[in-house]
Design a binder for these strands. Sequence first.
DNA 1: AGAAAGCCTCGGCCGC
DNA 2: TGCGGCCGAGGCTTTC
Length: 263
Amino acid sequence: MPEILEVESYRLLADRVVGATIARGWADAYLAKKLPSPSAWARTVKNLTITGTGRRGKLLLLETNGPTLAFRFGMTGVLLLDGDAGIEGLFYGPHLFDAKWLRGGLEFRDGRKLIVHDPRRMARVEINPDLDELGPDALTLTRREFNEVVRVDRGDGPAIKARLLDQSRVAGVGNLLGDEMLYRASIDPRTPTGLLSAAEKDRLFRAFRQTMNTLQRRGGSHLGDHMDARFPGGLCPRDGGTMLLATIGGRTTYWCSIHQHSS
DNA sequence: AGAAAGCCTCGGCCGC
DNA sequence: TGCGGCCGAGGCTTTC
C-alpha cells in the first residue's frame, strides 16, 4: 500500500516530532538491512535532534542536527507515533496491528515513539540516503519534468507503465497510481514510451496531476476509479469493457480493453 | 495455492 | 562483431 500519498501522510505524522531529541533507536536485522549492521542505527541516532522532515517519492526523510535519517516502507510498512496511525484506514484489509510486526524505530526523550510496523519485512531505514538515484517528486511534477519522464533516447523505450514505475525517472508512482493515471488518460499500459503521440502525452500529464490530487483528497492510493474492477474478469466502471490483466514492468497491471486502446 | 501495493540483483540482448 | 547500458524477469518475505 505505501505509495507516495501514504508516505506523505507518514511525513505529516513525523512533523510532530520536529524539535524532539532521540533517546534511543532500535532496528531488527531486516529493517537495518541496508546499514553496515543493525547496531549502526542505534549508535547513529542516539542524541540526535529532529530539525525537519522531507520526502522524495516514497522515501521519508528526517532531518537532524547530524545525519539525515530515512525510511522506506516496502509493501506493508506503516509509520506509527505512540501507536496512533497517521491517517484513517492505515491498517487496510486483513493487515491489523500486531506487536510482533514492530520492526524498529525511535524513542524520544519526551517518551514518544516513532515506530515502523511491517508484517512483510521489506521496510528499510537508511542513513544519509543517496537522493541522486531518485527522479523528481511525483506530487509536484511539472510539465517540464514530465517531458523528461517520457523521453526516450534509444529505440522505442519501455512500456509506459514500466517507465512510470521507474523511480529514477519520477519518484513516487507505485503500481496502483500508475494504473489509475493510465486508466484516466485512456492509454494502453503496454504502449512503448517512445511511441506515445503528442496527444497521449498531453492526456497523461493531465491525468498524472489529476490522479495525485484526487486520490490524495480521497485519502489513499487504493481509492482510484479503476480499483473496483481490479480482479480477473472485472468490468470497466466507465464503459463496461472487460478489464485485461498482464504483468508489465514487473507488476500486475489492469486496464480496460475498450477505452485504453492505442490507435 | 497463488498473488501481493516495493525494491534489488542479475542475465540477456538491444542499439550504437 | 564488441560492448556498455537498458530492460525485464525473478527473488525477497509473510500473509491471507
